[in-house]
Design a protein around this nucleic acid. Sequence first.
DNA 1: TTCTTAATGAGAATGATTCGCATTTGCATT
DNA 2: AATGCAAATGCGAATCATTCTCATTAAGAA
Lengths: 143, 143
Amino acid sequence: MKQSDKYAEILKKGDLRATKQRYAILEVLDCNGAPVSAEDLYIQLKRKGIPISLSTVYRILDAFQEKGIVVRSNFPDVSKAVYELFCEEHHHHLLCVDCRRVFPVEGCPLEDYERLIEERLNFTVKGHNLEVYGHCKDCKKKT
Amino acid sequence: MKQSDKYAEILKKGDLRATKQRYAILEVLDCNGAPVSAEDLYIQLKRKGIPISLSTVYRILDAFQEKGIVVRSNFPDVSKAVYELFCEEHHHHLLCVDCRRVFPVEGCPLEDYERLIEERLNFTVKGHNLEVYGHCKDCKKKT
DNA sequence: TTCTTAATGAGAATGATTCGCATTTGCATT
DNA sequence: AATGCAAATGCGAATCATTCTCATTAAGAA
Ligand SMILES: [Mn+2]
Ligand SMILES: [Mn+2]
Ligand SMILES: [Zn+2]
Ligand SMILES: [Zn+2]
């Protein structure tokens, strides 16, 4: 199966028309391991020669989020939201406060915690946001 | 010791001049158990007859955050930042996506996780952001 | 190919936060 | 208590991310 078929399927499943812009965004997100801001995405698309406007980038990302195709997050002290393809393996991110790079960490430490909250506080948990920040391996060296 | 002495001490420790506006903000934050937005704070201050401008509210909160007097957080799908007094007992929050209320939960489930990250990934953890969202007790009933 | 409607582009509008600058005020020092 | 000066404030303008409006284009069903 070609990559483009994969994207077509994602769009069909989301009831979204297959446009050049949507393909291109899926492709860029697919290649970027780490989350990207709407503007970075826009710049990368322009660089690839894709005709698109920034408002369309935002609209597409919104639609994708609605359909669960992408996940939006906000890192502390970063003003723009960032987006990444939804990934079956729920995971989290480390943010290096020096170089601002984002590192994925597989797994999630919150299963027991959420169960506890449901039982003790009678609160139905629908999800969570977790980001860890600090100094990455490389930036530690440089000091 | 009077409350106002407590605030004076906080400001002195932070090398910040004692102004009416700063006292008033400390007082409002102290009374509000849950985190508040800059604008809510501004409204509450006006209601109390404190002369202050919104930009001053932002400036004071920034200064307080700088000094570790307050903690700023951003909840998912809430456009404004919220602030609360720093609290020795590190804790987290539950956000009800129906009524938008915020509930504190004592304790933190991330100690082991952070240790693991430091060991396995050679990343120095400085902190984390964690918010859990879902449906609160009251909103569950209403359905 | 035609028709309907969703999607796009361009720019204006919005909303939260920050900035610039003139004025005021806390506070250290006479 | 009066003085001087840096820090803090008020007000409006500026900025930045994001959303909205509306005229135009293009999927894709028929
Ligand atoms: Mn990731
Ligand atoms: Mn709290
Ligand atoms: Zn780094
Ligand atoms: Zn609720």
